[in-house]
Amino acid sequence: MKYRLLGAAAVVLAVGGTIVPAHADTTATNVTKSTVNKSTIEGSGAVTARVAWVGSCEDADGISVPCGKWRVRLRAGGTVTVADAAATAVDARGRKADSVGKFAISGDGQWILYERAKDHRLVVRKVAGGRGTVLPASLSRKGTEPMRVWLSPAGDRVLVEYDEGREPGKIVTVATGKIVKLPAADDLEGLSGDGDEALAMRYNNDNTTTLVAHGMDGHSVAKVPPQVVVNAATRALSADGHTVAVLISGNTETRQPPKLRLYDLATDRLSASMTLPLKPDASVYLAHWSGDGRLTVKAQTGGDEKPTVVRVLTVDTTTGAAKPVDTFTVTARNYTWLTAGE
């Protein structure tokens, strides 16, 4: 399984659902059935998403499968239905697959990426509504089932990875459709804070692991990092293209809470640990930088038939000071859910 990496300077932490792939049907969002006035949604560039989810149904064998419409819960309250987003992916022959349709939310919460139901093309549009941008058909020519997708923090670039080892990953510029290909052997982990680079892991024949940042211009920065970086719960690349936020899981036996370290791909320097204001059982599953250097980190508690709690913090990486900015509960049953930055 391939794992994603996301972005870091001030840190935002949230406690939510499962890691990768999208959160499975053990938990769901505390969603209301209220809606938001359409004119309000379309008229405000500040409309932002907190969490998105798709429903769960049982097939003939009693197995849970994604169904229904993708819905987005807004930070200001209420929900929006993405009517043309596919609940399920398709295989290379265009047949309905068992996996969930592709969906992502930008780090700033203002943009969504989804798989269009009528033809399974990838589309990027504002959460607030309006006309979307349809990405090149070549991205999904082999179906969407083997794909993973990420949306940049500002919604201007898309990262696509394929399970097939011979198919290169791709960075797509939304406005132009320009595609930059990445080495097929690398495991992609997400886009940098400004969307200009992609972070990836490369597993070498000598049992070492290389961490690499691929730039849109073909330039890359790579190092064999310390094991603490390789074993991190999640990682995230800054807009500078070389600073990586490294999130370290907590330990309930030793009562150690999750920690943050910064790793520099250019200098091989690893910072001291910064303790995060989370309980040892909080699962840090996501991080992403904004273009101006603010870091968002998300973690989760609960699950396994219990409500999942999501807490969001900002952390100044120069001082280690953390500030809570959001908390919400994931309680309604669904097939999968994801938050801004996923």
Score class of each variant (00 low, 15 high):
residue 189 E to N: 10
residue 63 I to L: 12
residue 44 S to E: 08
residue 226 P to Q: 03
residue 259 K to C: 15
residue 322 A to W: 02
residue 91 D to Q: 03
residue 213 A to I: 08
residue 40 T to M: 09
residue 14 A to L: 13
residue 318 T to K: 01
residue 106 S to I: 02
residue 51 V to C: 12
residue 138 S to A: 14
residue 82 V to Q: 08
residue 250 G to K: 06
residue 190 G to K: 04
residue 219 H to L: 14
residue 301 T to R: 11
residue 285 Y to G: 15
residue 58 E to L: 15
residue 292 D to W: 00
residue 304 D to A: 15
residue 42 E to M: 06
residue 19 I to R: 05
residue 294 R to I: 07
residue 155 G to M: 08
residue 174 V to N: 06
residue 324 P to Q: 10
residue 212 V to L: 12
residue 223 K to M: 14
residue 111 W to P: 10
residue 208 T to W: 01
residue 295 L to I: 04
residue 302 G to R: 03
residue 332 A to N: 14
residue 121 R to L: 10
residue 198 A to M: 09
residue 27 T to V: 15
residue 134 V to C: 08
residue 313 L to H: 04
residue 182 L to F: 06
residue 142 K to L: 12
residue 259 K to V: 12
residue 179 I to P: 05
residue 240 D to G: 10
residue 102 K to W: 03
residue 6 L to W: 05
residue 310 V to H: 12
residue 36 V to S: 07
residue 133 T to F: 02
residue 218 G to Y: 03
residue 292 D to M: 00
residue 204 N to G: 10
residue 210 T to A: 15
residue 43 G to R: 05
residue 202 R to G: 11
residue 238 S to H: 05
residue 144 T to D: 04
residue 184 A to D: 13
residue 261 R to Q: 15
residue 163 D to N: 08
residue 197 E to Q: 15
residue 225 P to V: 05
residue 123 V to H: 04
residue 64 S to K: 13
residue 240 D to E: 10
residue 179 I to M: 07
residue 127 V to W: 03
residue 318 T to F: 02
residue 281 D to T: 13
residue 48 T to F: 05
residue 209 T to A: 08
residue 314 T to M: 07
residue 72 V to R: 00
residue 68 G to Q: 09
residue 258 P to W: 00
residue 46 A to H: 04
residue 123 V to Y: 00
residue 231 N to E: 10
residue 99 S to E: 07
residue 306 K to V: 13
residue 83 A to L: 07
residue 260 L to A: 11
residue 231 N to G: 11
residue 226 P to R: 01
residue 152 S to Q: 06
residue 331 T to N: 11
residue 191 L to Y: 06
residue 79 T to D: 09
residue 261 R to W: 00
residue 313 L to Y: 06
residue 339 T to F: 08
residue 272 A to F: 01
residue 186 D to N: 15
residue 38 K to Y: 06
residue 248 I to N: 08
residue 158 V to K: 04
residue 88 T to H: 01
residue 152 S to G: 14
residue 324 P to R: 01
residue 6 L to S: 14
residue 68 G to E: 11
residue 29 T to Q: 12
residue 52 A to C: 13
residue 59 D to W: 02
residue 309 V to H: 07
residue 45 G to A: 14
residue 30 N to S: 14
residue 189 E to I: 09
residue 195 G to C: 09
residue 283 S to T: 12
residue 68 G to W: 00
residue 24 A to I: 12
residue 122 L to Q: 01
residue 156 D to G: 13
residue 140 S to R: 01
residue 16 G to I: 09
residue 7 G to R: 01
residue 262 L to V: 07
residue 265 L to I: 11
residue 196 D to W: 03
residue 250 G to Q: 09
residue 58 E to M: 14
residue 69 K to V: 09
residue 81 T to F: 02
residue 108 D to K: 02
residue 299 A to R: 01
residue 22 A to N: 11
residue 112 I to R: 00
residue 205 N to D: 14
residue 245 A to I: 06
residue 105 I to G: 11
residue 113 L to V: 05
residue 291 G to P: 08
residue 51 V to W: 02
residue 54 V to R: 04
residue 100 V to H: 01
residue 231 N to H: 04
residue 210 T to D: 14
residue 36 V to R: 00
